[in-house]
Amino acid sequence: MSGIVGWGSSVPKYRIKVEEIARQWGEDPESFKKGLMLREKSVPGPDQDTITISVEAARYALQRASYVDPGEIGAIYIGSESHPYAVKPSGVTVAEAIGMQPDFHTADLEFACKAGSQGMFLAWSLVDSGRMKYAFGIGADTSQGAPANALEYSASAGGAAFLFGREKVVAEVIETHSYATDTPDFWRREHEFYPQHGGRFTGEPAYFHHLLSCARIVMEKAGMKPSDFAYAVFHMPNGKFPMRAGKILGFKKEQIEPGWVVPILGNTYSGASPMGLAATLDIAKPGERILMVSFGSGAGSDGFVFETTSELPALQDKAPKLRAQLADDPIYLTYGQYAAFRGKIRV
């Protein structure tokens, strides 16, 4: 058996409400709250980035799998579209901060919002093949939407880390699939601060086509149907898309809701479906199946079928759960504070 042996999530303390952003641009907040099912989003502090968020998530994962010697972790793959450096790996800083150095494999990954799930697949594959005892797959982002753009209401910050191993597995990987095509729905050129997106083009041929195809194929490979799952986690660029995808596939709202953290978190890009999975592992019971399907623009989806084990409950309270972190006394920012924090204005 191989799969997840430890997990952790990290979300910044700062938030901005949809009303505060809408007020700034003379927009109607209700259209974002009802239309996209977004209430507020996380904002990284001036001292937080993909590296610091990854460190906290990985430390929580190790707090859960406390028997693991970090020196035995053979690889760490961090997926993000906001690695702090254009050239210099995030993986080495995170690895040193958790004590993995110097015998490990790393390289940073980028695939819009699915680089984190790709990192999870690589880490699991290395462990499942017997190549190494443990490996980390992490998805984290501190993404930016251009001021007044629709993405500004959702682009948020956070991440989740998954430690894979073959013993004391809490969630076994039953099946995986990946589905990708060259679809230019969203991109950011080098030296550009904000991404560009193809407007209405981003929905049907990009998110829904790839995510639904990947979900159907991974369920078919596993010989399972929606009713075989206790939970489903789909990439959450907003509140509406994952709910609609679930409905099309035949999932009930109750299967999606535990991992549906986007209304109070925002879209954490590479961290999005991994954080949904983390929130689900925080509350799942032994012997339950979880379907997770990411989506990254460009475009592709990674699908995983997990089944939880009797090892899971003992680890759930050993580190802060995602929903507890979200509820823990958030600090609300004005648009001005937010703009300064995010480097949108220079004071």
Binding site: K13, G45, D47, Q48, D49, I51, T52, R59, P84, T93
Partner: peptide, 22 residues
């Protein structure tokens, strides 16, 4: 104790990480 960005060497230089408390 948390892991945070402490400062950076201008816009082009190295980012410097370390501990803070919350």
């Amino acid at each position: 104790v948390v892991f945070r960005k402490i400062s950076q060497d201008g816009e082009k230089g190295i980012k410097f990480y370390g501990y803070k408390v919350v």
